[in-house]
């Protein structure tokens, strides 16, 4: 029951969607540039920007209590830690 949430107009939603489509186009375009190692990083960075847009607007995180965003860090930090620690093995084996 959040009144702020109701203020997102259809136009704003369509704007976010357009941004997501454009970003998809950019990902495909960047991949064609053959940037080597950098291309993985840009691809993941763009994906993360897209995800943030979806989270904040489509999933209304921007309008929820701060608790939701704080909680969201739990799985992200956990996953990052798990991957990081596993790679201490993978890189140095």
């Amino acid at each position: 029951m959040n009144d702020k949430e109701q203020n997102i107009s259809t136009g704003a939603y369509i704007g976010i969607w357009a941004a997501l489509i454009v970003l998809t186009g950019i990902t495909v375009w960047v991949a064609g540039l053959h940037l080597g190692n950098l291309s993985t990083i840009t691809a993941l960075a763009i994906a993360t920007v897209k995800t943030t847009l979806v989270l904040l607007f489509f999933m209304h995180l921007r309008y929820e209590k701060p608790l939701f965003i704080i909680m969201l860090f739990a799985p992200i930090v956990t996953l990052a830690t798990i991957i990081g620690l596993t790679f201490v093995d993978v890189w140095f084996r």
Binding site: T78, T81, I82, L85, V88, D89, V90, W91, F92, R93
Partner: peptide, 22 residues
């Protein structure tokens, strides 16, 4: 508790670096 799982694998052939870290 999330950071210590590697201690079950000390003799499994992990890298030395990760064994010390874990």
């Amino acid at each position: 508790g999330y950071l210590v799982w590697g201690h079950h694998m000390f003799t499994s052939g992990m890298s030395d670096a990760s064994r010390v870290v874990f």
